[in-house]
Amino acid sequence: MQKHLDDVVRGLFRENPTFRMLIGMCPPLAVTTSAESGLIMGLATTAVLICSSTIISLFKKLIPQQVRIPAYIVIIATFVTMIDLVLAALVPAVHKILGIFVPLIVVNCLILGRAEAFASRMPVSRAITDGLGMGLGFTWALTFIGCIRELLGAGTLFGATVFGDGFVAWRIMQLPPGAFLTMGLIVFTLNLVGNLRARQLQKAARNQMKVVGKEA
């Protein structure tokens, strides 16, 4: 159980696919013009990730090594198409926002990456928790980027006006350069915080050593 919990938490932060591993970079850059589309894209990817990880983990013994990549791709593509159809039928408004990017989940290397690196070696239950963690990590990352870009680029958050009429929209944030700038600055900030914390830990460890040394 502890391992399962760890799977989820790991995907959310320590090995966050977008901010730490920097894989599957197309959606974070392309569909995050608003918080809403980031959130929906993240959830759609999460659904595909969990489904494909489950199936791949279930049949890992039956799929021969030599053809595992084509088989995984077909499985992933099937789920993506299914989700695309379901979205189109049930939540057309959402489907419209995401447009071409839903079919493109197929080529998101996050999903194939997890299938190859994790699901194909682990029991089903852990494949699911890993998919959940990675997916949710991906989702919050996309939503976060979307929030920043929407806030600065349009003055709104999830469609609700945040800044008043006096606000001048930063148009660049809604255009592709805005995605790169936001992404870069977030990764920069995370690394900065990470480095500072590591330095503190090192210092603490060194002090500890000194104390231990004196005692000895």
């Binding site: 001048v168 930063w170 148009r171 660049i172 944030m173 255009l175 350069p177």
Partner: peptide, 10 residues
């Protein structure tokens, strides 16, 4: 370039 793309109106 940042300003030019971000605030063309201003």
């Amino acid at each position: 370039v940042f300003l030019g793309v971000a605030f063309p109106d201003q």
